[in-house]
Design a protein around this nucleic acid. Structure first.
Lengths: 234, 234
DNA sequence: ACATACTTGCTGAATATTCATTCAAAATAT
DNA sequence: ATATTTTGAATGAATATTCAGCAAGTATGT
């Protein structure tokens, strides 16, 4: 496939298919031009995630991204200005997607803190979010985050707001259940456990999304024994 | 300091100091030559960890490593053959150090499973192991692990053996305390929580080693309520 | 004791490679 | 016709690797 895309003739075929998909979008929107531009950007971002997952941060080249998207070499510098900006846009994209996902899961959950916590956990191991491909891309960014402030800021995906919510859920659960843990450390343990499971999912061979979810449910059930999950892992 | 080391005269001074230290070793060992070679390798490995922590994997160059060690440009290819081999040796070094550390902590702990679990937890947040510098280096490797089998193998620092031990501890604790969790998921949750705390320590701003340890103790205490920590975090 | 050849560790300039970026020209859309 | 998007070859910067030679030590012979 990589080889095929290096051949201009083959690439044309790919482009035409992409063009057809784009036309459908165009018919819905008013400005086809702008839609096209946004489509290309998304296409390049997806190709970037692929490359990060396949080759890691250090070996992700613009050539590989362009090939993955079935476009030519100069294309990234036209749509994003530089490699750095492409990577930031990619991380931003993933961070937004992640945040929107858990936030809407939280809105759909009931009022009770236990339901909300289970909803957050389930959201983390949802099909759409928790793919090997995306986890690998996340981890590639984590590896560079400490030395790049821009990444560091965006990598707080489970960011301040998320942490505040987990803290408040732990506080409400404590009150409801009469537990006697200290709230902040407990909330930290819960959210880092989810992160740790992500990390393992990406590295470990045998671990599946379902098993990771099960582990989270098992641990949280033990931590909050008077709040049984109404919705376990599927 | 970096500037100073770029100056050959200054570098000579550094080398002479290193030479003096080496002489002491020579008096103890028989072959001073070989000791020197191993010393240099360790010196370069330490410089590599520094560079990884300071600049991340992608920006770690041989020039930076050589400068950090106060030696010349060609030095790495003389002692390790290639950049790749230097990085593998560095990861190997960290993995060995980590494994030795938790293993000896386990040996020093008592017979009771609870004591052993608390010892493992404390080992993870020990001063010698859990430094910002080393955590950053670990994370740099994690980011590349998925795309490089060699790293992937070594990055299972909390590897199969470690996981087996945690599983058996969870099983023994379950029996002792009459808990009713499922063992494997629980063990997975415990060990990934520790990993997740490491990840946060490296990225998070306000989090300290002590707070992370406290969170681990809080969560594990909640998970195994009939086994109170005899040794909490300092 | 001294000289000679030999070994080892190291240096730093030269080389080769990889890759982001640029840009003139072609293709495509409006 | 004009503007926009895309191409792909050319450019240049960064950097891993090579290697001829230097320096300091070590063994051997006289």
């Amino acid at each position: 496939m990589n080889e095929a895309l290096r051949n201009p003739k083959m690439r044309t075929a790919v482009k035409m298919r992409a063009g057809a998909a784009q036309k459908d979008v165009t018919e819905v929107e008013k400005k086809g031009r702008k839609a096209s531009k946004e489509t290309r950007r998304l296409q390049l971002i997806e190709a970037t995630i692929d490359s990060l997952a396949r080759r890691g941060y250090a070996d992700t080249t613009l050539a590989d991204v362009a090939d993955g998207a079935g476009l030519s070499r100069g294309i990234v510098n036209f749509h994003f200005e530089s490699k750095e900006k492409l990577l930031v846009a990619t991380l931003q994209f993933m961070a937004d997607e992640y945040a929107n996902h858990w936030y809407s899961a939280l809105e759909k959950a009931g009022e009770r803190p236990a339901d909300q916590l289970w909803a957050l956990v389930a959201a983390d191991f949802d099909r759409r979010i928790c793919t090997k491909r995306k986890l690998a891309a996340w981890c590639a960014f984590w590896g560079e985050a400490k030395s790049r402030p821009t990444y560091q800021a965006l990598c707080g995906a489970r960011d301040v707001k998320y942490q505040e919510i987990v803290v408040s859920l732990c506080a409400r659960l404590k009150e409801e259940g009469g537990y006697d843990y200290v709230v902040e450390p407990m909330a930290l343990a819960v959210s880092t456990m989810l992160e740790g499971l992500w990390l393992r999912l990406m590295m470990g061979d045998g671990l599946t999304r379902e098993k990771a979810h099960e582990a989270a449910v098992e641990a949280i059930t033990a931590m909050f024994p008077r709040h049984i999950a109404r919705t376990g892992p599927k």
